[in-house]
């Protein structure tokens, strides 16, 4: 059973005069850490939202953990972890309280909640800030609370939209270790615009442009796609720009 199976997925955003942010996309992902790369406006966030079941696909089929996503979302959602790109939170909540609230919303059994909250805060290195109010945290810490609430229910599918924004270099290294651990048990999909994060943390790369998958393979395959003539500071960046520019015909 695949964790994520999408076929011919179309997601229209922006109402009647909108556009297809995801356009005929096919994707199969199992356990491991998958990096979702692509230029701005390629449909990464819409795709992640659709996989998180908060955006309804316009057409095509989508299955999560072997269940077609349609009517009854609750069983699937209990096994999902989701960090949106704009992680909003309640300023007056304490860190522990916020993660406990999210665990309750995810319908975790109440006797398991305190332990799960403590261990997820420990995993993101915020155990000592658990009783601080959310509004007292720095941007990087808020992002880490976002990761903690996503993993509190030990999800089988973990969707992280730009999780490394606001993290300093040391925190990003720690984050990569954490996702590598998580990827052993579950299917982790990380949307990012930082090509080097993908090179370091992911077992698999999915490249999207204009709403569909243009490449799926290992980071090494992505490196091989590039030649020294392509734009980029590292081999993997050259591979990325080789695959993107051949499609859209320009670096911007």
């Amino acid at each position: 059973m695949r964790a994520i199976e999408a076929d011919n997925l179309v997601v229209r955003v922006g109402g009647r005069r909108g556009r297809n942010a995801v356009n005929g996309l096919g994707l199969r992902l199992s356990r491991g850490v998958h990096g979702l790369l692509g230029p701005n406006g390629a449909g990464k966030t819409t795709l992640i939202r659709t996989l998180a079941t908060v955006q309804r696909p316009t057409s095509g089929s989508l299955s999560l953990l072997g269940q077609p996503v349609g009517g009854g979302l609750r069983p699937v959602r209990r096994r999902l972890g989701y960090l949106p790109q704009h992680f909003g939170f309640y300023k007056r909540f304490k860190v522990r309280e916020f993660v406990e609230y999210m665990a309750w919303l995810k319908e975790m059994p109440s006797r398991r909640i305190p332990g799960a909250v403590a261990s997820s805060l420990e995993r993101v290195g915020l155990a000592d800030r658990a009783d601080d109010p959310m509004k007292a945290l720095s941007g990087g810490m808020v992002r880490r609370v976002g990761i903690a609430q996503a993993i509190v229910n030990t999800p089988d599918v973990l969707l992280l939209d730009e999780p490394t924004v606001g993290l300093d270099p040391a925190q990003r290294l720690r984050f990569r270790e954490l996702v590598a651990e998580l990827g052993e048990q579950s299917c982790v999909l990380i949307s990012t615009h930082l090509v080097e994060d993908v090179a370091a943390a992911c077992t698999d790369v999915v490249l999207v442009a204009e709403g569909s998958v243009v490449f799926q393979g290992t980071p090494a395959d992505l490196v091989n796609a590039g030649t020294p003539e392509h734009v980029g500071d590292s081999p993997i960046e050259r591979g990325y720009s080789a695959l993107i520019t051949t499609r859209s015909g320009g670096a911007w």
């Binding site: 959602r77 999902l80 909003g88 309640y90 309750w104 919303l105 995810k106």
Partner: peptide
């Protein structure tokens, strides 16, 4: 008005 709206909508208790 709800800053955590997207997070809450994605949980099983939403609805």
């Amino acid at each position: 008005l709800d800053p955590a709206h997207e997070l809450v909508s994605a949980t099983p208790r939403a609805g």
